[in-house]
Structure formats: C-alpha cells, structure tokens
Amino acid sequence: MAEFDDPSAVVAAARQTYEAGYRRINAYSPYPIEELSEAIGYHKNLVPLTVLVCGILGGLGGLALQIWTSAIAYPINIGGRPLISIPAFIPVTFECTVLLAAFGAFLGNLLMSGLPRPYHPVFNVPAFSRASQDRFFLCVKADDPKFNVTGTRAFLAGLGAKEVSDVEQ
C-alpha cells in the first residue's frame, strides 16, 4: 500500500498502476475524488438502479395498500363516491415512493460497499488513520494476477509514494 500527500499525485499513480495492468487495486481518500475512482477503473455503480426499483416498489405498494384498504378491506360508502378515488390517493403514494427510494439509496449504498464492517485489514497500517484526514492511499491487493511482493513494492515506490507498506491480513 502506497501513501501520498497530494490528490493529483495519487490520481496519477492510480492511472499508472491501472495502465501497468493491475486490476485488483483500491484507493483511499479523505473526501470524494471523482478522478480517483475513474482512475482505478470504476465507472458505474448500481445505486441509481436500486433507488429506481425501490421507488417503483414503494409507489406501487403505497397505491395498492390504499386501494386494498379503501375498496376491499374496509369500504366506506360516503355519498356514493367511488371507492377507488385515485386523486385522493396521490399524496400517500408519493410519500411511499420517496420513503422506499430513500431507504434504497441509504441501505443500497451501505450494503453494496460491504458496510457496516468494523474490521478491515487496511486498518492495520498505522499511517492509515490519516486516510480520513489528509493522506491518500493506493493499495494493490495480493490476489492480483500481476502481484509479487518485491516487484509491486518497487513499482509503487517508483510512483512517487511517500511510503510503501504491507497490509497484514
């Protein structure tokens, strides 16, 4: 794992690592850097799809709940008005759509990232505590086909890393 102190440096290093053929790489930064996730070859995430599916389910579920309760389970005849009164059902349908979509965004984001996960090997590197403050890290995983301890180490050091360390499993 290589440590950098400049966002441009880590992005440059990440691009070079990717170009060198490494694929099982990870980068860490204290704030979101769009270029960084692009550089390690991560372009699309599934969060928007999850939100869409959850939203549609929420909307349909909310509407179905209202129709079922008002027309089937507990019909009340008020002056002969229609039991399935769609205009009056719109507010609750909308709220249910938003509620489920929001849960989709929140839980989808966390679960797809494998969180909550209190322990992770990268935390074993003492310097990593600064990954949430002012340092940037680039990590090549040992199961990468191109990985070999000395070669990868030398490669990362050659990218201008401040320090290169091994992550204990």
């Binding site: 930064s29 769009e34 960084l36 390690i40 995430n45 969060v47 984001n109 990232s113 209190p118």
Partner: peptide, 17 residues
C-alpha cells in the same frame, strides 16, 4: 462510522446515493 475507510469505490457510491 460503520467501518468507513474512504475507499474510492465507496465514495463513488456514496456520492451517487
């Protein structure tokens, strides 16, 4: 923090979410 470690992929999902 739920084990947040600033992974670039996590950030990408996070930003979208």
């Amino acid at each position: 923090s739920m084990g947040w470690r600033g992974d670039a992929r996590h950030w990408s999902r996070y930003e979208t979410a």
